[in-house]
Simulated scan of single mutants.
Amino acid sequence: MRILLWHVHGSWTTSFVQGGHDYVMPVTPDRGPDGLGRARTWDWPANVREVAPEDLAEEPVDLVVLQRPHECDLAASWLGRRPGRDVPAVYVEHNTPLGAVPDTPHPIAGQREIPIVHVTGFNELMWDPAGTPTTVIDHGVVDPGRRYTGELARAAVVTNDPVRRGRSVGTDLLADLCGAVGVDVFGMRVELLAPMPGLVTFEDLPQARMHEELARRRVYVHTARWTSLGLSLIEAMQLGMPVVALGTTEAPFAVPAGAGVVTTSRSELVAAARRYVDSPRAAAEAGAVARAHALERYGLGRFLADWDAVLESVVATGTL
């Protein structure tokens, strides 16, 4: 199957393109948001091909994977075919709704030509589809292997755009965490964080390098209040790290008992991170539980099989 999709979410796409399909990725000279092309910091297989927009009309695309509302118009313009009408399409919703939750209509709500695939059950529950067919395919992650050493008595946090996104990703919690444990923050534009004692930032490392560095930290702390389930949380679990997470959105259902601490208490989040930093043995034991669970629930094989079933159904019938 030849699938057109945009490079929007690098971690999710890394898993999605592991399937046995031909993936067509738009690329523009400036490699802007609508033409980013192949990843520079993730390892993608050779079946992900960059194609210029002006050449897409010559590509025999079987299905379009949409991830942002304006991509429907982009696909229609560049392919010469309208997604959902002239070529089968699905819309992947990565994010939680903003605004009047849970009454927020989805951007493509109220039509039946393009089904919506949510990456978590929480997202599916919170968006109002207004009759549009929906399903859930839980995340799958390429296993980075058990790399945990916990040799550095510090906490690790992964976030992107922490200054712009602020409270939604828990940027305000970093000061409290730094006051109790040293915190190393990884991600995009983390260098914009205001300096504070105990805080070190690591800007946009290649994925393999980031995994190595995460695994050296004693505990992973997931500070997001209101985002979809961060793949970094699952990756940390697969690395064998104990995790401490805010008990919001999908996180309470992703972290089992014994793998760490899930809480809605600011003080308990900080205290739990401190306990793991102070106890290497407890941290290693929790990390082993976390890895076993993440491999079972968020394994790549299940993820790709679920996606193949949806893709085949949509190409054959136009719906789920």
Rank of each mutant, 00 (worst) to 15 (best):
G230P: 03
R297G: 01
V190R: 02
S15I: 09
I137S: 06
L295E: 13
L98S: 14
D103S: 15
L125A: 10
R146Q: 15
W78N: 11
D43R: 03
S267M: 00
A224Y: 03
V158G: 01
L63S: 11
F253N: 14
R274V: 14
P206E: 01
A39W: 05
D103G: 15
G187Q: 00
F202W: 06
H7V: 12
A236F: 04
G20A: 08
P102I: 11
A76G: 04
G131V: 07
G110C: 07
Y276N: 08
V24W: 12
W307Y: 12
E191K: 02
L300Y: 13
T248V: 15
G166Y: 08
G170D: 06
V261P: 11
P197I: 13
R297E: 09
P206N: 05
G121R: 07
D22R: 08
V200I: 15
W12Q: 11
L320F: 12
A100E: 12
D143G: 04
G182Y: 10
V65T: 06
W44V: 00
T120L: 01
Y148H: 14
T149A: 12
H9K: 07
G121A: 04
P252D: 02
G145R: 07
G179E: 06
V158N: 02
A89Y: 02
L300S: 13
R189W: 04
V51C: 03
P242F: 03
A57G: 08
E268Y: 00
H139M: 12
T41Y: 08
T28A: 06
P88R: 03
T249M: 14
E113I: 00
T248M: 15
N47E: 12
G140E: 08
T28Q: 05
Y91L: 11
A109H: 07
R81L: 07
V17I: 12
F253S: 14
